[in-house]
Amino acid sequence: MLYIKCPYCGLRAQKEFSYGGDATVKRPNINEEVTSEDWDNFVYMRKSPRGKHVELWQHIAGCRQWIKVQRDTATHEIFQTAKVTEEIR
């Protein structure tokens, strides 16, 4: 079971979180024209990297904040966590 540091609540067990997918995907702006290729990329296309990956988790059984987690998809090592408004370097 992973041990995830919520930037708001501190270290908590994985049980309290729910996974939310790739954090690097950016939704096209609302009310702006978007090509169908860009839209398809946003909706469907995801990389599945082995190694470092920045992903979204939500602290559903805690503060309910969505957070960013930089995790190694092969070893589960977590390098960094951050608020969604912060950058992960």
Binding site: S18, G20, R27, I30, L56, Q58, I60, R64, W66, V84
Partner: peptide
């Protein structure tokens, strides 16, 4: 969760 996602991350 869906609403929270859009309010916290997208908009």
């Amino acid at each position: 969760s869906h609403l929270e996602y859009y309010l916290q991350i997208v908009w």
